[in-house]
Design a protein around this nucleic acid. Sequence first.
DNA 1: CCTTGACTTGATCCGCGGTTCAAGTCGCAG
DNA 2: CTGCGACTTGAACCGCGGATCAAGTCAAGG
Lengths: 138, 138
Amino acid sequence: MDDALLDIAEVAQRSALAPSALRFYEKKGLIAPAGRNGLRRAYTPDVLERLALITCARSAGFSIAEVSRFIVAQPSDADLRVRMAAKAGDLDEQIGRLTRLRDSLQHAAVCDYEPIVDCPDFKRAVGSVPEPAIVPSE
Amino acid sequence: MDDALLDIAEVAQRSALAPSALRFYEKKGLIAPAGRNGLRRAYTPDVLERLALITCARSAGFSIAEVSRFIVAQPSDADLRVRMAAKAGDLDEQIGRLTRLRDSLQHAAVCDYEPIVDCPDFKRAVGSVPEPAIVPSE
DNA sequence: CCTTGACTTGATCCGCGGTTCAAGTCGCAG
DNA sequence: CTGCGACTTGAACCGCGGATCAAGTCAAGG
């Protein structure tokens, strides 16, 4: 009977993450094996979704610690809602920056300004970085 | 006579970067002082635009090394055009991911699923992470 | 039984992007 | 000339996000 549990190797392969990364995530509280097969970690398939979430969030610039906070959260956690909304706002700004940068890049690819980085069109889009949003160490 | 050169302290303040960061960027070839005032670095004002570019690119996920490659580039560098276009494409994907994540986050902020991360709507948007672009270890 | 091979662990190492530190050097005020 | 304070340098250190390594443990197969 196949308990439908996945071996770490399989999870690693299907998530395209290294086993060491899976163990690392576990140590950080992001995932947990459903059980063991001898010493081997055995995961329920939903860990794959979890990992997709983690990968996605990380690619969006969230730290492991941030992701962890969202994962352990209860829906009753009103504070979390606030943080999520705030993060959504951050993402919005980030999306704006990336969009501008992409446009600049596309322009630069066909622009013949001497040092390309000095093309006025290029600089115009880049200049709009109002608040560096430096997270105070807290 | 004020040569319109800026002291490192002034650049640091106006760019919201630490002096140590400016020296670090210099070591990496991203910026260069126009001269010295005694030992003190003196910069022409355009360094501020340069720094804005760097900050913007870094916030978009570019490494220092990548930014450096773009900065030193000549317009005659056809290869660079290709890389720029490629980067624009990468950014496009990234923008897509971020947009989806933002939407998920906004939804999650008002969703009452038990562990919020398991909300189907939330997961749907997250799942679309096609290729992690992990470079196989040769 | 013993070997094999895939996993386990904790520890150590890595590159990145800086910050911090000790020690030195400058120009200016008194 | 003697501080003083703001800069200079190189080197050491830091947190992050893992990768890698040595040594141990397991289940299965011969």
